[in-house]
Design a protein around this nucleic acid. Structure first.
Length: 262
DNA sequence: ATGACAAAGAATCTTTGA
């Protein structure tokens, strides 16, 4: 089973590219972030035509996440628990049935948090605290469980082409990285890091200043695996070539292959 | 020292992103 995540930066602009990519790699479950539309505006038809079930948690203009799955999506929940006042569309949880049980997947768009020392960073830290509490509960289920998405976290110096450029940034501040490490300490495995030590594995290149051409990238899109998912890890990768397509998203798809079958 | 670039939505500019 292949589970992929991609921040598409508008699904209405990127639907055609998404279809091309889906036909190429045929993932079983796909987590999309920054769809930037409301539920009724989401272009469901091209994805349903490829055999995907679709659940959309959108909002007007910004944010928005969607989950696509070849298997039926069960127990779908929109939103991350822990703050009833949070109206931003950033989280979907669902399960799919697999041999011997279920696989649980979360699609997440974690807040950027810039600039620091504003309420935006407080919101990011609050969201991460809620994520930790949620993840701790889910780990008790001892299921294959994947939290996939745009974490807006550069985990360490190997995850940026020039770490010194990010020291004052919400994506790389010590508190941000420490909270991400807390998730790993709880028992999650960073799928890309579990399969490579390369310091050139990036998932985002800014549109500005020729970042792509200079390979000025960062790794901020992650798939964190529960122990039961990590036990089934076969491989992981980044579909970097997508960034070279015409009118690309600034992020590229990241994926993991797990030894799980329907 | 600063901006670059892209997208959405309300409007020909502002907000947001990273």
């Amino acid at each position: 089973m292949r589970i992929a995540t991609w921040n598409v930066n508008s699904i209405r602009l990127r639907a055609e590219q998404a279809v091309t990519w889906l036909k190429e790699t045929q993932p079983d479950v796909v987590c999309l972030q920054e769809i930037k539309c409301q539920n009724e505006q989401f272009p469901r038809e091209p994805f349903e035509a490829l055999g995907y079930n679709v659940t959309v948690h959108g909002q007007k203009g910004f944010n928005g996440v969607a989950l696509l799955s070849k298997l039926p999506l069960e127990d779908v929940t929109h939103g991350l628990a822990g703050d009833e006042s949070d109206v931003q569309a950033r989280f979907i949880e669902a399960v799919v049935s697999v041999k011997g049980g279920v696989a649980r997947v979360c699609c997440m768009y974690l807040p950027n948090g810039n600039p620091p020392q504003t309420e935006k960073y407080d919101y990011k830290m609050g969201f991460m605290a809620r994520l930790k509490a949620f993840a701790a509960e889910r780990l008790k289920l001892e299921e294959p469980f994947v939290i996939a998405g745009d974490y807006n976290v550069i985990p360490g110096p190997a995850d940026a082409s020039d770490p010194s450029a990010w020291t004052q940034d919400a994506l790389y501040l010590p508190r941000t990285r420490a909270t991400f490490r807390d998730l790993l300490a709880m028992g999650f495995t960073d799928a890309i890091r579990a399969t490579s030590d390369s310091d050139r594995l990036f998932s985002f290149w800014d549109y500005q200043a020729g970042a792509w051409q200079r390979d000025f990238g960062i790794r901020i899109d992650h798939l964190l695996l529960s122990p039961q998912a990590a036990d089934r890890l076969i491989g992981a990768g980044i579909d970097k070539h997508v960034r070279a397509w015409e009118r690309p998203s600034d992020h590229v798809p990241v994926w993991v292959d797990l030894k799980l079958a329907a």
